[in-house]
Structure formats: C-alpha cells, structure tokens
C-alpha cells in the first residue's frame, strides 16, 4: 500500500503595494485527491500557486509537505520535495526536443541521465507524444504543448501537481481528453492535484473538493455540489444582483 502525503498551507499572505493579493489562506491536500482552486479573475489563484512554488516571496504563512517546511526554499529546491507545477501560459523549453523537455523534469530532481531518458520515454508514450519525441517543443500543436508541460512535471515523480489553467486554449474535445487523463492520475500515480481553471464543467466533474478565493480571501470550501450552492460564491461570480 502506498503512503499518503499531505501538502499543507496555513495563513499564507502576500501584498503588492498594499493590495492584499492573498490574504491568510490555508488549505490541505492529500495524495489521491483533486482539489480545485477557483475564483473570479484577479482573486489570487495564480499568486497562490506562485507563492507555494517559491516563484514569489510570501509575506507570511507556512507551507509544508509531510511537516517538511518548503516555504523558505528557493523555487528550484522545491520539486525535489515533491511539488511541481505547470503554467497558465505554456512555458516550455522551445528549442529543446520533446524528449529533452521531459528529461529536464527528471534531471531537475537529481535523476541520472539514463533514468531520466527512460522516464521521459515512458511519459511521452503514456501521453501519446512519442511520435514527436525529437521535434522541438515550439513546433508542437497547442494541445501537445499542454500535454508536454504536464509530462515534464510528472517526470519529477511528484507527490503534488499544481496545474494552472491546464484547459485554457483547449477545445471541448481536448478538454474531455484532459479530464480523462487527470481523473485517473491521483490513483494511478498516487499524487495529489491542485487545479486552477475557469472551465466549470471540468472543475465540477473532476474535483473531489473546491476552495474558492475572492479578493485573495477564502470564501468557501467543500464538495463541488455544496460550493455551487454557496450564496457567497454565487455573488462572487455573478455579482450581488444574482443572489
């Protein structure tokens, strides 16, 4: 039986020139589950991901994986502790081949070259990108680039995967493919997923729990069907007239 890990954030805060982008946010994710982080534009979702992955310096708060404090680490030190991410705007190494892009995920957490190449080959096969293994990433279709970014993150053998709007730019059919991929991932790979997206169909069907932010603050948490009916969430998304 595989062990359960816990990714925990408590009291996380960040201000930009006095504006509170993330205000005292706490959450907990276990391996094997998918948590959706939602909220209107500018509610602090991406800032939250940037803070927990070390891309931004936090003002306050504690970030741990299995009680191991990763909140004071540099961004490049975090993947080896089991937390990796993808970006809202795809960030690939455009001149590197697909294989090299995925290998980097493995090399970045200290795997040897041969092992990294084997892991990358397996992931490219798993995600249907093997035919493109030698093609520079910049030549891939948008869909394949999205998948390649996920493959690179998975190559680090993470315990927690943070996906920042993975469905952005995908059509309905591609989003369904993404759903099929992500829905089995927590169990198959024993990982926890935090997903940010505006596609409510994907979020509602995929996530075990939701965490809703508005103006940097948590306004609701719980199961998707409960959150959907939460009046504060309805107001945040549709405005006060809707309630």
């Amino acid at each position: 039986m595989e062990s359960t890990s816990i990714f925990e954030v408590s009291g996380l805060s960040k201000s930009f020139a006095g504006l509170k982008a993330v205000d005292n946010v706490s959450m907990k994710i276990k391996t094997g589950e998918i948590l959706g982080l939602i909220g209107p534009n500018g509610s602090g979702k991406t800032t939250f991901i940037n803070l927990v992955t070390g891309m931004l310096e936090k003002d306050a708060g504690r970030i741990t994986i299995d009680q191991h404090n990763i909140g004071e680490m540099q961004a490049y030190q975090i993947p080896v502790h089991g937390l990796v991410r993808t970006y809202q705007t795809i960030r690939l190494f455009k001149h590197l081949s697909s294989l090299e892009n995925v290998m980097i995920g493995a090399l970045g957490v200290g795997m040897k070259r041969k092992q990294a190449a084997a892991v990358a080959e397996d992931l490219l096969e798993e995600l249907g990108l093997s035919e493109r293994r030698d093609a520079p990433a910049q030549g891939l279709t948008f869909r394949d680039q999205r998948l390649l970014e996920i493959a690179r993150a998975l190559a680090a053998k993470p315990r927690f995967l943070l996906l920042d709007e993975p469905a952005a730019g995908l059509n309905e059919e591609e989003t369904d493919e993404l759903f099929a991929l992500l829905s089995v991932m927590p169990e198959q790979k024993n990982i926890g997923i935090l997903i940010v997206d505006h596609d409510m169909r994907l979020i509602m069907n995929l996530c075990n729990r939701l965490h809703v932010l508005n103006y940097g603050q948590t306004i609701a948490e719980g199961k998707p069907e409960d959150v959907r009916r939460n009046p504060e969430v309805v107001v945040a998304y549709l405005g006060s007239e809707a309630s």
């Binding site: 992955t53 070390g54 891309m55 540099q74 961004a75 490049y76 030190q77 975090i78 993947p79 080896v80 990796v84 991410r85 970006y87 960030r91 690939l92 190494f93 455009k94 001149h95 590197l96 090299e100 290998m103 980097i104 995920g105 090399l107 970045g108 957490v109 200290g110 070259r113 990294a116 690179r152 680090a156």
Partner: peptide, 21 residues
C-alpha cells in the same frame, strides 16, 4: 545534462527554476 540544463535557462528561466534547475 549540464548543457541541457543551461539550455533551459536560455529558453525560459522561470520554467527552469520550477523544474528544479
């Protein structure tokens, strides 16, 4: 491996950092 890591910093140093480089 070192050369490949250096090339990632050329292409996108933010993605490189979040990939453990």
């Amino acid at each position: 491996s070192l050369g490949m890591k250096l090339r990632t910093s050329r292409d996108d140093r933010y993605a490189a950092r979040s990939s453990g480089i």
